[in-house]
Design a protein around this nucleic acid. Structure first.
Lengths: 203, 203
DNA sequence: CAAAGAAGTGAATCACGATTCATTTCTTTG
DNA sequence: CAAAGAAATGAATCGTGATTCACTTCTTTG
């Protein structure tokens, strides 16, 4: 007899898999999904192009996996901020702030996760990602409405608008890097909170 | 002697050029920039693929030209709405409403113009487009601030946030077609106006 | 109408980058 | 260490869709 999969071998493969995902993350952060090539990923991960296909069935599958992991992190961070004790509006503010700070930390990655158009498999992940965000904010807003802390409103629409405002102001094409700092975050959050706590509504 | 360019010939060429741009518009509205192929455009315009290249140097050049014309229309409409008489907030509201209605009329086109990633030449046009929008809204907001109709604020940041909120709520991945109607527009505009007219600001 | 030149055609070419796979190298086990 | 199997390699292949260009058709003019 001879070779059989061993613990050590399994660990080695896991390490390579992580290197591939790490290389993907770095390249996406540098240029977004569209411009990243499999050959580049392989080179940065220190392996041959063909080897990628021993770990991921296709480019789309690799991107989808990377996307899922990356957004999982983001959602977790924002969810944690939203769970902090306080008034609903304070909790929403904390969530927005975490979202904004993380976006500024890696603007291109944020853009890739939020807005860049991608292949169907990745796009499905993005829909899930957005839905999870929407639900997180929605829950807090709905709680606030039910407990009289926030005026009645369409919780989903508000949370969608807030995410859009943040994303556009922080990573959109008009958002020039030098202008983005904590003050910018404060302004944009103030804008969102005004919309969240507004008193008059149509109908 | 023989052939020389004539008025009639010039008109015929102009008509073909318009057909190409019209075909491009229809296809972009159906699927966005990324999926539109030169062969499709030629077929829909009723000409051969090669003929496209007698009118436009490349796909990128064609798209950039289409983009420029399309956004020119949009900007003109919004600019007209912003010029209507009234309080600054009313003028901003009118501008947002035109922006929103037109986006809902052709959601895919709106998405292509606002958010879809594109080649560099088209992207540059998009930057101009965004800047023009930003300036239009900015002017009105700045006027409002100067005349005491609006609280002091970063006019550019506010206008960027408003466009982001609108775009996300109306054409983003979570914006489901059946949910989009005049009521949705009213809600999202109310959100934006609250941010525009808010009383407290950071610092 | 014939000649000159413009415009149109579409099959062939080209560019690009993902994917394959025959071959080589590495790991494990007795 | 040798054999067996796993994993890695990277040059060659493949698919896709933009672009070219030799040829055909149409327009104009004298």
């Amino acid at each position: 007899m001879a070779y059989r999969e061993t613990e050590r071998g399994k660990a080695r493969k896991e390490k390579t898999r992580q290197q591939i995902l790490q290389a993907t993350a770095e390249l996406v952060d540098a240029s977004g999904f569209r411009l990243v090539q499999m050959a580049q990923i392989a080179e940065r991960a220190g392996i041959a192009a063909g080897t990628l296909y021993r770990y991921f069935a296709s480019k789309e599958a690799l991107f989808a996996d990377y996307f899922r992991r990356a957004t999982e992190q983001e959602v977790r961070q924002v969810a944690a901020a939203l769970q902090e004790p306080g008034q609903s509006s304070e909790r929403v503010e904390a969530g927005l702030r975490v979202f904004a700070r993380r976006a500024l930390l890696k603007p291109r990655t944020a853009w890739a996760l939020i807005a860049e158009p991608v292949d169907p498999a990745v796009d499905e992940q993005r829909l899930r990602y957005r839905q999870r965000y929407a639900r997180l904010f929605e829950q807090v807003i709905s709680f606030g409405i039910d407990h009289g802390e926030l005026p009645h409103q369409d919780a989903r629409l508000t949370s969608t608008a807030m995410v859009g405002a943040l994303a556009e102001a922080l990573v959109g094409p008009l958002a020039e890097p030098p202008a983005q700092n904590e003050t910018t975050i404060d302004h944009i959050i103030a804008f969102c909170l005004a919309g969240l706590t507004r008193k008059e509504y149509p109908q």
